[in-house]
Design a binder for these strands. Structure first.
Lengths: 185, 185
DNA sequence: TCCAATCGTTCGGCTTGACGAACGCCTTCC
DNA sequence: GGAAGGCGTTCGTCAAGCCGAACGATTGGA
């Protein structure tokens, strides 16, 4: 079995952080998770390679998602003003996507602000298997969704559809804007 | 060690699904992950409780996030027209939240459409530890963010801030609307 | 046809994860 | 002062995770 960088140090730090946050002693957490104190002591000092069941039980006892123990997050305050985010996709003048928040460790989504003008539809090939896309129209009107059944949307309308099949987007009015949350669980 | 429902059956199904998707044989995947064929055979038949390192190595070899092997997805097409979603929170006439997409298995976010009118600020106590909130203003102007440093936002502005500290939201104009993605990694 | 390579499953053996117990330390109470 | 309870660490033991090898089945090539 090769060592491919499993985050055992990260897990140790996560366990200590979450336990402190929950205000539990090592002994109490171990008791709640139904594991031995010595096991938890070992894991918190990164001197073990826990089984999935052990780590799962600890997540349950700590009240945090399992993956939270593996990929810790970072939170901060950030503002991106209208029109100032990094335009990461501008294939044609009638379709611009601004990336607001890319997928950080522990999350599985990207958030984009779209701006579309009437013209040729933007056709997308299937994304990674399991991708789901959430679209919320802010201004204007557009057609969007699976290529086989595009749906007309107006301001405030919300659409969710599988992003792992061919899909499309086309503005029906000038200055159409929408928010896209691409989620790849 | 008590049995607290670790998803061993889910892991087995996920491994089979992802391996098939990647077009790999059991022998080839095991080789790429650096583990024994017999170990992978055991895991795919849900007759084992893998260590974190083993599962991590498999995630790397399959090219999917580690936690993807633990929580699987689901996708479908759905439309919610403006004003028709289930209003799940309407504390006062100046703040209405419409839930567009609640947290399904395998995802860790809720998506809301907010509608605010000027008046008393809506003050929120800290949510679950690790919660991050993404706010995108569609119409109007508002103040939002951590209670200690609210930020003024206009149409198209985007704000991300930790939702596990006291935070606030207050409309500065009539008919202010915004999208809120509450993410609890 | 036979042979080589690959497949997935089963088997026995080794190593380490997880166990309970013991330990020293600290705090609280009588 | 001593006793009780709780703390986190260390220790020895057991069993399950993981290993490599063997096996029968399948496929492709000579």
């Amino acid at each position: 079995m090769s060592n491919t960088g499993a985050p055992l140090q990260v897990i140790a730090a996560s366990l200590r952080r979450e336990r402190e946050r929950a205000g539990l002693s090592l002994s109490e957490l171990a008791k709640r998770a139904g594991i031995a104190k010595s096991t938890l002591s070992q894991l918190e000092s990164a001197s073990g390679n826990p089984s999935v069941e052990t780590l799962w039980a600890l997540g349950v006892a700590l009240g945090v998602p399992f993956s939270r123990l593996v990929d810790p997050p970072a939170a901060r305050v950030r503002v991106i003003r209208a029109g100032e985010g990094p335009a990461i996709y501008s294939e044609r003048a009638n379709y611009t996507a601004t990336l607001l928040a890319s997928c950080p460790p522990g999350a599985r989504r990207d958030i984009y602000m779209l701006r579309l003008e009437p013209g040729a539809a933007r056709e997308s090939e299937p994304h990674m298997s399991g991708t789901v896309e959430h679209l919320i129209v802010s201004t204007g009107r557009m057609l969007a969704g699976p290529r086989t059944e595009p749906i007309e949307l107006g301001p405030g309308d919300y659409l969710v559809y599988p992003g792992d099949i061919p899909h499309t987007a086309q503005a029906l009015e000038r200055g159409t804007t929408a928010l896209l949350v691409s989620e790849h669980v």
